[in-house]
């Protein structure tokens, strides 16, 4: 039996394909090509030169920014996961399904406000004369410089990623078959051992995905290091801004962007393997 070509399912696919093609694949390819162009007299000229790659990757400043960004993204993934976990445990195991739905809704509310606005709010809160230092002063501590530091940037990163990490973790913890937890207790596992030996392994997928999303969002975040971290030392995102501003060096910024994409691709692949991978 020959089947007639049915255009119906393809029609629904088209908008996404066009969108992704026009605004993701093509720009990406263009950016890759751009990284080989040359800038002469503040004007870009098509070329196929390795000049930009050699200059950027041969520069200590690039690698300083690279390792700093990587380190911060790892730390944000770890810290966010650790802070989120007790909250997620509570949401997953001590709330009714209705309560949990409401709590998850509340976790989405922060996204209603632009992240930039939230970063500005932290500038006020963390300022030398801000409420945090006022409180600490009340017990005879400080004032501490919290803005324009790695600490300030980390506050920004956590503001950005924590709700999402809690959502991922809660989702995976709540999905654990409750009889597995009962079976662990039934076989002699104390509540603490059940957590380590059963709950964490059973929720592995969501826990890893939460940490990876925190990593990815932190790795590419510009607002936190710029407005709260003081942009010195620069992260890769700040390096991109600086490079484009200095002498129209878009091709060199493209080199940084491609390095970032390759890194995220490697991390995401490894993480998905860890999240869904099985032994045996």
């Amino acid at each position: 039996m020959t089947r007639k070509f049915d255009p119906y399912p393809h029609v629904w696919r088209l908008p996404l394909l066009i969108w992704q093609g026009a605004f993701f694949v093509v720009p990406l390819l263009f950016m890759a090509a751009l990284s080989f162009w040359l800038v002469k007299n503040y004007r870009m000229e098509p070329a196929f030169a390795f000049d930009n790659w050699e200059r950027m990757l041969g520069r200590g400043a690039f690698w300083d920014a690279y390792w700093l960004t990587l380190f911060r993204a790892c730390m944000a993934g770890i810290i966010a996961s650790l802070i989120a976990f007790p909250a997620s445990l509570f949401l997953a195991f001590h709330l009714s399904p209705q309560g949990r739905r409401f709590a998850l809704l509340c976790l989405i509310v922060p996204f209603f406000t632009s992240f930039l606005v939230r970063a500005y709010a932290w500038q006020v809160i963390l300022a030398e004369s801000g409420p945090v230092n006022a409180l600490l002063g009340g017990i005879g501590l400080g004032p501490y410089t919290m803005l324009n530091s790695g600490f300030g940037a980390m506050i920004g990163y956590l503001t950005l990623v924590l709700p999402l990490v809690v959502i991922f973790q809660t989702w995976s913890l709540a999905a654990i078959d409750k009889s597995l937890i009962e079976a662990a207790a039934n076989l002699g596992a104390s509540p603490a051992r059940t957590l380590v030996s059963v709950i964490i392994p059973a929720a592995k997928t969501g826990l890893v995905l939460g940490a990876v999303f925190a990593f990815i969002m932190t790795f590419g975040d510009f607002v936190s290091p710029f407005y709260l971290g003081g942009s010195k030392p620069p992260t890769l995102t700040i390096l991109i801004i600086d490079t484009t501003k200095s002498g129209q060096q878009w091709p060199r910024a493209a080199v940084v962007a491609i390095m970032m994409i390759l890194t995220l691709f490697a991390v995401a692949t490894a993480a998905l393997k860890a999240a869904y991978g099985r032994r045996g």
């Binding site: 078959d177 009889s179 597995l180 079976a183 059963v198 392994p201 059973a202 592995k204 099985r278």
Partner: peptide
Amino acid sequence: WQSLALFPFL
């Protein structure tokens, strides 16, 4: 258990 409740990650 009725569902057996075997640990899928072990």
